[in-house]
Amino acid sequence: MPQPTVKSQGSARRCLIALGILGMVIEESIGGPVSVRTTLLAILTIGPAYGFQLHGELESRTAGRRAVNVGQIYGTLERLVKQGAVESGGATADGLPLYRITTSGRAEALDWLISVESPRGEEWNDLVDRVLLASSLPHVDSLALIGRYREHWLASAEPSGNQASPIGQELLEAGARTALASAAVAWLDSVGESLLDPRAATFQRGLSAVRPRRGRRPVPVA
């Protein structure tokens, strides 16, 4: 089988980046769960990784909830490099460029991993995605995160003493908020029990050494 030429590799790379930009535009326009940016930075706190590796890690560590296209992964990585959150980390033995988190990128990732704040309307998705990802990282105290989230959800369900009793749609929304808070606390309690189980060590893991079936070799990071 003929090997791809430099020109064809460049074309493939441009296609990946174009898909990545389109994915980021769509995500910014319609909202969605945790951003690809923060999840990639969180995964890179484990160590340097290449694009397709990060693609697989993101999907597996969020149980398929964050299955994004590879072009979006590379597009986000390029943007992170330009912003100084990620830098070149060398290359694998067969030439795949590695990406390494910088000091500022690590600080951003660790701040996100201990936060319980979310954009309005994305509280549930953020909760699940953040806990799933945090529980997979060896250096993150997942139980502490669960404790903070539990307090956060309990507080959010309490009515404000300075407001009149809700009526109409506000009454219905308050009921929905209370129901969601109850579901969140119940799920967090279940997660806490699972993480205290003797088999919980299987949750936390380093980067997978399994190579992707297909991949591209983008131009090395500058």
Rank of each mutant, 00 (worst) to 15 (best):
17 I>G: 06
1 M>N: 07
176 A>T: 04
93 A>L: 14
31 G>E: 06
54 L>V: 05
174 A>G: 12
13 R>V: 06
210 V>H: 09
65 R>D: 06
98 L>D: 03
170 E>Y: 13
154 L>E: 15
184 A>W: 00
124 W>K: 07
173 E>K: 02
171 L>F: 09
215 G>Y: 15
217 R>D: 08
43 I>K: 02
171 L>E: 10
123 E>H: 12
180 L>R: 11
33 P>T: 12
5 T>M: 03
76 T>Q: 02
117 E>R: 14
98 L>M: 04
166 P>L: 08
197 D>R: 07
37 R>V: 05
164 A>D: 14
39 T>E: 14
203 F>N: 14
136 S>M: 00
117 E>M: 13
2 P>M: 07
125 N>F: 03
125 N>A: 13
61 R>A: 05
40 L>D: 09
49 A>K: 00
220 P>S: 10
75 G>C: 13
38 T>F: 08
83 Q>K: 11
175 G>I: 00
68 V>I: 09
217 R>E: 10
211 R>Q: 13
37 R>F: 02
31 G>K: 01
27 E>C: 07
169 Q>K: 08
117 E>A: 15
78 E>A: 11
16 L>M: 14
140 V>Q: 01
85 A>W: 15
63 A>T: 09
120 R>N: 13
139 H>L: 02
212 P>N: 04
160 S>A: 06
221 V>L: 13
49 A>N: 08
25 V>A: 12
186 A>F: 06
210 V>K: 14
43 I>W: 01
69 N>S: 09
172 L>F: 12
217 R>A: 07
105 G>Q: 06
173 E>I: 03
151 E>M: 00
138 P>F: 07
190 S>L: 09
213 R>N: 12
82 K>C: 08
36 V>A: 15
187 W>I: 05
158 E>K: 10
152 H>D: 12
146 I>A: 11
220 P>A: 14
122 E>M: 15
136 S>A: 04
147 G>W: 03
153 W>H: 04
186 A>Y: 02
44 L>H: 09
108 E>A: 15
42 A>C: 13
32 G>K: 03
185 V>M: 02
15 C>K: 13
138 P>S: 10
135 S>W: 07
46 I>A: 06
96 L>M: 12
190 S>C: 01
135 S>P: 02
71 G>C: 08
65 R>L: 14
18 A>E: 10
10 G>I: 03
182 S>N: 05
203 F>I: 05
195 L>N: 04
101 I>Y: 07
76 T>D: 03
41 L>H: 07
201 A>K: 09
86 V>P: 06
141 D>R: 09
4 P>W: 00
84 G>Y: 10
59 E>A: 15
201 A>L: 09
36 V>K: 01
219 V>Q: 12
102 T>R: 05
183 A>M: 13
113 L>D: 13
17 I>L: 15
34 V>E: 07
85 A>G: 12
115 S>F: 11
59 E>C: 06
185 V>S: 07
168 G>Y: 10
132 L>A: 15
208 S>L: 11
41 L>V: 05
209 A>N: 10
93 A>Y: 08
12 A>R: 02
86 V>F: 05
97 P>D: 10
12 A>Q: 04
38 T>C: 06
3 Q>F: 12
188 L>F: 05
217 R>C: 10
166 P>A: 10
195 L>V: 05
198 P>R: 06
14 R>W: 02
195 L>Q: 08
168 G>T: 07
54 L>C: 04
152 H>E: 14
170 E>D: 15
91 A>W: 09
186 A>N: 05
70 V>H: 11
97 P>I: 06
183 A>F: 01
